[in-house]
């Protein structure tokens, strides 16, 4: 992938309890699929989708937890240099909502300060089984200074909107950062990946 492919590249990571629909959201957005069965998605590391926003190509690299959330064992390195976090719960599962503070604590510890966080209540197609009211979630997200959206990976409700709005925010954030040009603090992601190092060398 050469630099000319896109104008912006952002790393977005998903977190939240197991079973809330993170993998489905990613697959719905990147592939337009909703998996019928619950086949484990072996080998899925991250998915890439390039979107065009106002004529600019934005490459979104969307990372899934690889199942490490199941026993609360996500590696810290997963959060490194993420530009945005999608914190997901299941609106039909109170427990997944009650775990949010715990997830936020992990974010505070390991993610960059500048990360944008979006709270997503998934599975709104199951409205009749709702356990977490929209208002509660709204209040929570407001208090935590997060964006908030409800989605259905199954019905493809708000899924594109989620990622596209996020992309817009990330672009404007990136623009502001280059304007402010905050050199004082070293930015994460300043290091080089090996592949980059390799391709830039001659031997």
């Amino acid at each position: 992938m050469s630099m000319e492919d896109y104008d912006f590249l952002f790393k977005i990571v998903l977190i939240g309890n197991a079973g809330v629909g993170k993998t489905c959201l990613v697959r719905r957005f990147t592939q337009g699929l909703f998996p019928p069965g619950q086949g484990a998605t072996i080998g899925v590391d991250f998915m890439i989708k390039t979107v065009e926003i106002n004529g600019e190509k934005v490459k979104l690299q969307i990372w899934d937890t690889a199942g490490q959330e199941r026993f609360r064992s996500i590696t810290q390195s997963y959060y490194r240099s993420a530009n945005a976090l999608i914190l997901t719960y299941d609106i039909t599962c109170e427990e997944s909502f009650r775990c949010l503070p715990e997830w936020l604590r992990e974010i505070e510890q390991y993610a960059s300060n500048k990360v944008i966080t979006v709270l997503v209540g998934n599975k709104i197609d199951l409205a009749e089984r709702r356990e977490v009211s929209q208002q509660r979630a709204e209040e929570f997200s407001e208090a935590q200074d997060m964006y908030y959206l409800e989605t259905s990976a199954k019905e493809s409700d708000n899924v594109e909107k989620l990622f596209l709005d996020l992309a817009c925010r990330l672009i404007s954030e990136a623009r502001q950062n280059t304007l402010v040009n905050n050199v004082s603090s070293p930015l994460p992601g300043e290091g080089k990946s090996i592949s980059y190092l390799t391709c830039c060398n001659f031997n």
Binding site: M1, D5, T30, Q31, G32, L33, P35, P36, G37, Q38, G39, A40, T41, I42, M47, I48, K49, T50, V51, E52, I53, K57, K59, E160, L164, A167
Partner: peptide, 18 residues
């Protein structure tokens, strides 16, 4: 794996215009 018939190639080719 699972029942997906034809795994589309995700990634750079899927450009949606927004």
């Amino acid at each position: 794996d699972g029942d997906d018939k034809q795994p589309e190639v995700p990634g750079t080719n899927n450009i949606i215009m927004a």
